[in-house]
Write a protein that binds this DNA or RNA. Structure first.
Lengths: 261, 261
DNA sequence: TAATTATAGACCTCTAGAGGACTATACTGC
DNA sequence: GCAGTATAGTCCTCTAGAGGTCTATAATTA
């Protein structure tokens, strides 16, 4: 029996490990709980491995193995000589780097992110009954409520992107109370601050289409103009989908950058 | 000095490790060499960790760490109680998942990768003097030689993608000797097998443009058809850029999927 | 004041070994 | 012949510790 053998032969006097699970796996779960419950603030350092090991009465190597699990999951980041930090996710400006816009004459002008930060404006905010597609993406029961946002992002006062965003309720209740002037240019930090949701992972799907009437109006394009479309599903640290987003931009000035692996 | 301290304080009597590299990193390179040179046959078991550790005069833990590196790279697979095996499908299809093509009616049909594997055909292979753009991407001195490939990928006998690929010489000399029938459908496994280059990371940049005459001919599109363009830079494990690739596809049937983080 | 040199504290590498878990195979008893 | 039992060989978990590298900061020196 896994349970008894573990707790007799390799037990050092602390609480038993769940049956069928290794001690480092159990430690990883414990630490993960601190993070997902928000007790350990993203960006802050956690205790040193030696102290954690001592606090949990395990060998250093075992604690290192537990931490390695969470590093692999992207929840923790280790920095040699400085410490181990709770991952701040892909929130904030780091996510913006995936969207770059400019004239089609960019060419070689490679990686230097220009100082231009896109401005955002919420032009519509509604509570809607989730359509089947939205409900399935956000794992909502059919006809549950979702918060639907429409948002225009501008670069140097020129609209470059229009986005339709669906967020599950009641998780995002805090946002449904805001009026239009209370929105920041970046949403993910707001999710974190106001709703306790940390965006941790996202899947993007880029396709090409022709602008609908709504889109062409918002982007000041002619009807049926060629259009780039990004469908994004964003996930929190527990792997739940917390945002569905459809973004549209003028195809001819569209840039999408991804770093694979 | 990293080198001397390592070899005095922790040396056990075997050959010195390269400066600036850990012993397990050096062991990983050694094992990787056996695999990429084909000396260890895909699917077969390698020596037991205990034997490998003894053969290389290192502690078991160190050898396990080296093996873990190759497992993470996908070159080895461990099976509890049976042994450690050389991975049979390295590189390959896993990279293809970043390109998916279909009719624009895909919609919700999400993640199930269909059995359709794209066929590839090299339609041109030349040794060229690197243009400034290519030389800077591949870190070549100006006017050095590069291998330029033009390649058409087809899905169900329909051309869906045309690619222009530049590879630095002499790293890829082994490929410049091949004739057009000797190319596989997937290039990255060939880089690994024939040139010892493991693609480890890639940056993609997606834009939209109008098809040039060459592209529209290869893809059987009308002149100036809207066209998706992916510029990829692929990097090896040391972070050197080893491939510059421009891919073009019909915008209307283009899908690009990225998993962020 | 500015540059250099300790120093503390963090993560990283490596060692040596004991015992557990899992798999496949050879052996034994019926 | 077949089922159950040893057994050997493999990877997995965990321990306990020494010494190294890296970063930031405090103390020292020019």
């Amino acid at each position: 029996m896994t349970f008894t053998t573990l707790s007799t032969a390799q037990e050092t006097g602390i609480a038993d490990v769940a049956p069928g699970q290794s001690r480092y796996g159990w430690l990883a779960s414990t630490l993960r709980g601190h993070i997902t419950r928000g007790e350990w603030v993203p960006g802050s350092a956690i205790l040193a491995e030696t102290q954690l090991a001592k606090a949990h009465s395990v060998a250093l190597g075992t604690m290192r193995q537990a931490i390695a699990v969470l590093v692999a999951e992207g929840l923790l980041e280790r920095v040699h000589g400085r410490g181990t930090f709770v991952s701040s996710g892909i929130g904030g400006a780091s996510l913006f780097r995936f969207f770059r816009f400019g004239s089609t004459t960019t060419g070689a002008a490679a990686d230097a992110l220009p100082g231009e930060v896109p401005k955002s404006r919420i032009i519509e905010k509604r509570i809607v009954k989730a359509t089947p597609v939205v409900a399935s993406a956000l794992n909502l029961a059919p006809r549950c409520n979702a918060l639907a946002l429409t948002r225009v992002r501008t670069l140097i006062d020129k609209p470059c992107l229009v986005e339709r965003i669906w967020l599950p309720l009641p998780t995002f209740d805090a946002l449904s109370a805001l009026n239009k002037s209370q929105w920041d240019d970046l949403l993910y930090p707001m999710y974190q601050r106001l709703c306790g949701v940390t965006v941790h992972k996202a899947d993007d799907n880029v396709t090409f289409c022709l602008a609908t009437a709504d889109v062409s109006r918002a982007l000041q394009l002619r009807a049926n103009a060629p259009c780039a479309r990004v469908e994004r599903r964003a996930f929190d640290m527990a792997g739940r989908c917390v945002e569905l987003r459809h973004s549209f931009g003028d195809a001819l000035s569209f840039h999408y950058t991804a770093h694979l692996r």
